[in-house]
């Protein structure tokens, strides 16, 4: 295994712990279907936007409810996984 190319696993909206403020670092648009990508843009997802995971549905692999700006949006984990985020600071509370 080439150790030098190993990168620190980046945090995505899927893996971001609940109630931690984070900033969208990059969105992997290519990973998303076109209508999905457009809806995501329309809901305001963009680099530099402040996000936070509020809830994860049902044990298992249900969708995620996250706060973006002052709005709450539900999305599936696959989409959340395409949204790379950077942890802001300490836990929100």
């Amino acid at each position: 295994m080439d150790m030098s190319r190993r990168v620190i696993p980046a945090l995505s909206l899927e893996t971001l712990p609940r109630r931690h403020h984070a900033t969208v670092a990059a969105i992997d648009w290519a990973q998303l279907a076109a209508p999905e990508a457009r809806r995501l843009r329309e809901l305001g997802f963009d680099e530099g936007v402040d996000v936070e995971v509020l809830h994860r549905a049902t044990l298992g692999r249900g969708p995620i409810a996250c706060r973006i700006g002052r709005m709450t949006v539900a999305l599936r984990r696959a989409v959340a996984g395409a949204i790379h985020v950077q942890l802001d600071a300490l836990p929100a509370k």
Binding site: A33, P35, E36, R39, L40, L43, P63, A65, M71, T72, V73, A74, L75, R76, A78, V79
Partner: peptide
């Protein structure tokens, strides 16, 4: 078809 997504404003 492709499984549809779920994205909704709450």
């Amino acid at each position: 078809g492709e499984s549809s997504g779920f994205m909704m404003e709450m």
